[in-house]
Simulated assay, not measured.
Amino acid sequence: MLNCIIVDDEQFSIEAIRKYIDMLPKLNIVGIYTNPQTALEEVSLDSKIDILFMDIDMPLISGLELAKALRSKTQKLIFTTAHSKYAFDAFEAEGDAYLLKPFTFGKFSTTINRLFPTEVLKTTEVNLETNQEDNFFLVKNKEENLRIVKVMYKDVIAFESAQNYVKIYLVNNKILTAYLSIKDIVEILGSREGFKQFHRAFIISIDNINYIEGNTIKMLNNLAFTVGESYRESFNVFLSNKLLRTLRKR
């Protein structure tokens, strides 16, 4: 059982998190605080906290300030906020994940599973937003006289806008050209996990990132691009959630 504490000054946000926690039988709420000062005074090492859900915008003491005092008292720290601008600060505060409100149950559960991969977190009577059996799509390939091609989502490296078309880069080095727009691709992908847009012309599979250098992302097929200015905040949230960091004292 994973013990959880919620610190948030908004009751509707607490109820949303409580609802999601109730859907995962391995999670157990041991404390809820609407006043950050009370949380500061009452949360101790004896609380045996596995997950601390922390809002950021709160009166008198911000979640970032409170996190500095409570970080050593919890195994994992998850920031929950409606503002993406705090992503880098959350990273500096040694947050393990950053959930932007309003977040879905799918996002919540995948975050918990990522942080606790050895735990069996089964959902009860819940339909996830992405159908797990819907693992492919069909597309007309311009380079094959509009032959309809079956494409597995797991085989996609990236989608790239090319004037009136979209290029689809696959892991077998094949490139499909479809009469689609990036906006169409966004609609097709919906809330599917594993794909991110960090540039107006590219949507990428994060599983197929080779490396990140500064603001440049290079994919496994050597496709590379610089993160767009308007996508910097979401990119920082992605780094905050995925980048490993040491727990050693600096």
Results as ranks from 00 to 15, higher is better:
F53D: 02
F53W: 01
M54D: 03
D57R: 13
D57H: 12
L60A: 05
L60T: 11
L60I: 11
L60G: 00
L60D: 03
I61T: 02
I61G: 02
S62D: 13
G63H: 07
G63N: 03
G63P: 07
G63F: 04
G63A: 04
E65M: 02
L66W: 09
L66I: 09
A67V: 05
A67W: 02
K68C: 01
K68V: 08
K68W: 00
A69P: 00
A69L: 11
A69S: 15
L70G: 09
R71D: 11
R71Y: 08
T74W: 03
Q75M: 11
K76W: 04
L77M: 11
I78P: 05
F79D: 12
T80N: 05
T81S: 07
H83G: 08
H83N: 14
S84L: 14
S84E: 15
S84M: 15
S84T: 14
K85M: 08
K85S: 15
Y86T: 08
Y86E: 11
A87Y: 08
A87S: 13
A87M: 11
A87E: 07
F88A: 13
D89S: 14
D89V: 05
D89W: 00
A90S: 15
A90F: 10
A90R: 05
E92M: 13
E92H: 09
E92S: 10
A93E: 15
E94F: 14
A97F: 12
A97M: 10
A97P: 04
Y98L: 11
Y98T: 13
Y98F: 15
L99H: 01
L100Q: 04
L100M: 10
K101G: 04
K101Q: 09
K101I: 01
K101E: 05
P102N: 10
P102V: 06
P102M: 08
F103E: 03
F103C: 06
T104V: 06
T104D: 13
T104Y: 02
T104S: 15
F105K: 01
G106H: 08
K107E: 15
K107T: 11
S109T: 07
T110W: 00
T111E: 06
I112K: 02
I112W: 00
N113L: 08
N113V: 00
N113Q: 14
N113G: 14
R114C: 04
F116Y: 12
F116A: 06
P117V: 04
P117I: 06
P117W: 05
T118R: 13
T118S: 15
E119T: 13
E119D: 10
L121I: 15
L121R: 00
L121S: 02
K122G: 01
K122A: 13
K122W: 00
K122F: 02
K122D: 12
T123N: 06
T124N: 11
T124H: 02
T124G: 00
T124L: 02
V126Q: 03
V126F: 12
N127C: 00
N127I: 05
E129M: 14
E129T: 14
E129F: 03
T130D: 14
T130P: 02
N131L: 11
